[in-house]
Design a protein around this nucleic acid. Structure first.
Lengths: 244, 244
DNA sequence: CGGTTCCTTGACACAGGTCAATGATTGTGG
DNA sequence: CCACAATCATTGACCTGTGTCAAGGAACCG
């Protein structure tokens, strides 16, 4: 595995994802302040740890492309996956105010991200309560999303779980302005299994079953949702009616 | 079911749980400010909704005694339980900045709590960045705890799940200065089942099994951890060695 | 192009869901 | 304060769904 970190200081105001990091109004009110955040951009290869349990917490991350899985333990994989972070999403919010990471973050495919130091960010919060409120809102929404996924996983039905997982990914992609019906799942079947609390075999079988029923199309890591409404029916536990 | 709300304005500085709401240093630095928070105290009976999905978010809650379950849906129970809130813990943090509740909170036993308006609290945050940082830290820790529980539930073994659940409750009780080895589980078996993603029968069977092995003692809703170390072994998946 | 890793599919066993009946506990009204 | 009723907890028998083990095939990387 190549060590291909390649840091460079970034100008947020030229960043297309700017509004995804923080809502526009905060930024326009604080152009000079945002520039002081000293954000660094980096690209890493599959399998790279963005942070490990025990590392000192110094930064907050925003994904630009790729996918990062959050894991509970430092041991070599096959561990429960706590979350998948998608492009445009913020990573590491749960460690605000903590000394050391209690979790790890691993790129599951080639990933580029921005890294902003907490220190300068906290300073910005102190100067502008508005930014602090944005942070609080961001954390609250993340917590709600986390609990929603929580509920998803306890749907004691591998097929429902996978259907819910795909719909969740789709929704999050759409929220970032990407195609919600055709996307690439960068993570392995094993990662998905460790996320849903299943085995990779079962995940595989469920993919096949959904494909056989004509609800999705799977080509390696590319997934296409052919009948999202029917998929939602599967998730809800109803039989597949003639949904669009 | 009796409607036994009984509001009264509370003086936090005489509250024994004060330090549990917010760390001492914040309070001592802001005595006058805390008094302006206009906190109300209330007692409710089993089954009372503290808030329902769709209700406007106005307040933040702190439990003084009892237990509240957070649920995803407004329908009458038998729904996934997202979290149990124990005495001394803060409820509703995930709704910071939101308009309406997306979840509901139901007392699973006779419960008393404090209710503080977000409005006055946010004002306090704006005046004192230190309080804002406390809030952020509180939310971050809550998110981490939530993800830890997340991992717990995916232990695909009903016995391990229940062992982990009991240890988790025990740890949280101890963190609040209560007995960690002997406590009352106010919620029903069904609630526990809905929380762990099991059925009430399985939960019941696991309680019996742990009791049969001499690890716990169960008397209705009272639970006593006889061999916590052995319980931790069950949770970890190891066989029960001669742990204390 | 070859080797490794990952994905898919099959056969089988077992944990836990489902259905059902009995026993304990809680709360209510006389 | 006690008795009754309703809810909740426990236990058993049976069956489905998913984990486990194993083998073959596809995709990815050097």
């Amino acid at each position: 595995m190549l060590f291909m970190r390649d840091h460079q200081v970034v100008d947020c105001l030229n960043c297309g994802l700017l509004r995804l990091c923080f809502p526009g109004r905060v930024v326009t009110d604080n152009r000079q302040r945002v520039e002081q955040l000293r954000i660094r951009q980096a690209r890493v290869a599959t399998g790279t740890w963005l942070y490990r349990p025990g590392d000192r917490v110094r930064s907050l991350f925003t994904l630009r492309s790729g996918c990062v899985k959050e894991v509970a333990s430092a041991t070599t994989e096959s561990e429960p996956v706590l979350n998948f972070c998608l492009p445009g999403e913020v990573l590491g919010l749960q460690h605000a105010g903590a000394d050391c990471f209690t979790q790890g973050g691993i790129a599951v495919e080639a990933t580029s991200y921005c890294e902003m130091p907490w220190q300068s960010f906290q300073q910005l919060c102190a100067e502008s309560p508005e930014v602090g409120n944005e942070l609080i809102g961001l954390m609250a929404r993340a917590a709600l999303a986390s609990q929603e996924l929580f509920a998803l996983i306890r749907n004691r039905d591998a097929l429902k779980q996978l259907a819910g997982f795909l719909l969740n990914i789709s929704t999050r992609m759409r929220a970032r302005g990407l195609h919600g019906k055709e996307f690439r799942l960068g993570m392995s079947r094993m990662d998905i299994a460790n996320y849903l609390g299943l085995t990779s075999e079962t995940v595989s079988r469920c993919f096949s079953q959904l494909a056989r029923q004509g609800l999705i199309r799977v080509q390696a890591k590319s997934v296409q949702l052919l009948r999202p409404a029917a998929l939602a029916c599967v998730f809800a536990g109803e039989s597949i009616m003639a949904a669009t």
